[in-house]
Amino acid sequence: MKYTFLPNTDLKVSKVCLGTMTFGEQNSESDAHSQLDFAIEKGINFIDTAEMYPIAAREATLGHTERYIGNWLKKSGKRDDLVIATKIAGPNRGMDYIRKPLNFSKKNIHEAVNLSLKNLQTEYIDLYQMHWPERVMNMFGQRGVSKIDPNWQENFFEVLSVYDGLIKEGKIKHIGVSNENPYGVMKFISESEKHNLPRIVTIQNPFSLLNRLYEVGLSEIGMRENVGLLAYSPLAFSFLTGKHLNGTLSGSRLGLFPQFTRYSNDNCHKATKLYKELAESNGMTLTQMALAFVNQQDFVTATIIGATSIAQLQENIAAFETVVTPQLLSEINTIQEIIPNPAP
């Protein structure tokens, strides 16, 4: 296992981060604990979760994932050996059952942090992330912003001030954003520098062979401002295993949750077929090539992987030993030029 540091921190993290959004929906608590045991055995020390997990989010299972992790942390006694990241749910997600209004007010942030601490059975959170921006912007299924949210009032300073207080209390150590765009990232950075407030250290956004939109604007910001990408969905909801090319969705996340359609359009099928043929012609599986491609990007701090079985988890972790050569990268980029970013 290879390790790095979360940017501008002393937190040493594995390049592979265990994603946990299946815990409580597709995976039982026993499954979750087995995955955690296996991941730690393989050298993973970085675990990512969220208050709204498991996915697909629903009121009946809200918080199950954090509670499963918390029970495991208590049982294992490994809390101080690990870096734990979680997230506050942002608005505009149709989840008013979490709290009303679902925004980043001081009251809501404190409530969310305290509940996560309770669920995780820990005294501190290493990385606390904002799961979506507060303003309405590009959500899944669209590539950009064509209208400005008229109802949102800029509050970057106020939000950072709340996190400053929580850091001073010792409840969180560092902060990050998720599903953000260049505007939000730069505003958080500029406000933190202007007022000597906590600086975001990571961006958790999707990044894969089917979605390289992070490279448009955010990658330069990340590298120049030393904000690391925590790349999620590197296998595009398992589409980049190649197993869905024949149309079979039974038992998979895409089959269980048909509302997640962004990786299953015609262009995703066409691009995935080309990537699969390329991987196999280079003596590797599509899974290996897809994960290795993400892992080797200079702007990626860690890649978040998830699985529903130990066998899948083992395969995914092993794929990080694969190397994408410059020649293979060139061929990958040729496919990207033909079918750019088919998953919005």
Rank of each mutant, 00 (worst) to 15 (best):
R262G: 07
I98A: 06
I125N: 03
Y275F: 15
D266T: 13
Q35N: 12
G43H: 07
Y97V: 12
I84L: 13
K194D: 12
M137R: 11
G43N: 04
I304F: 04
N265I: 10
N151V: 08
Y232Q: 00
L120D: 00
I304A: 02
V323E: 15
V324Y: 01
T86F: 04
N179D: 09
G217N: 06
L254R: 10
E66I: 08
Y214C: 01
S161Q: 13
G170D: 05
N196H: 15
A85P: 03
F157A: 11
R93G: 13
Q297Y: 04
Q296M: 11
T9E: 07
W152P: 01
S190W: 11
N114H: 13
E315M: 07
A85D: 02
S30C: 11
F239G: 00
Y53P: 02
T122R: 02
M1C: 08
M289V: 06
L256P: 00
P234R: 00
R58S: 14
G170I: 08
Q297L: 11
T287H: 02
T308G: 11
I148E: 14
A319D: 01
L291N: 02
D266H: 11
K147A: 14
I167Y: 08
Y275K: 02
M223K: 14
P340M: 02
E29V: 11
M139W: 11
F207L: 13
K78G: 07
S14M: 05
T301M: 09
V145D: 14
T272G: 05
K42D: 04
H174P: 05
A85V: 05
G19Q: 01
F46I: 00
K243Q: 15
H33S: 14
E154R: 13
G19M: 02
I47Q: 02
G242D: 10
I175G: 01
Q204M: 01
E111Y: 10
K187D: 06
I40R: 13
S238H: 05
T122V: 12
I88Y: 02
Y214G: 01
T325N: 08
T9H: 08
N151H: 13
F257S: 14
P182S: 04
Q288T: 01
K15V: 05
G19L: 00
P234F: 01
R212F: 08
L329N: 15
N103W: 01
L82T: 02
G306F: 00
N333Y: 14
I317A: 01
L160I: 08
P150Q: 10
H269L: 15
N295I: 06
E66A: 11
K12P: 02
E59K: 15
L254Q: 12
W152A: 08
Q297C: 09
L249R: 15
K15W: 00
N295Y: 12
V13Q: 00
E158Y: 07
E59G: 08
F104K: 03
M130T: 03
S14L: 04
T334A: 15
R224Y: 10
F299N: 04
T65K: 09
K270Q: 10
Y163G: 03
M21G: 06
A236P: 01
K107C: 08
Q142I: 14
L102H: 01
I167T: 09
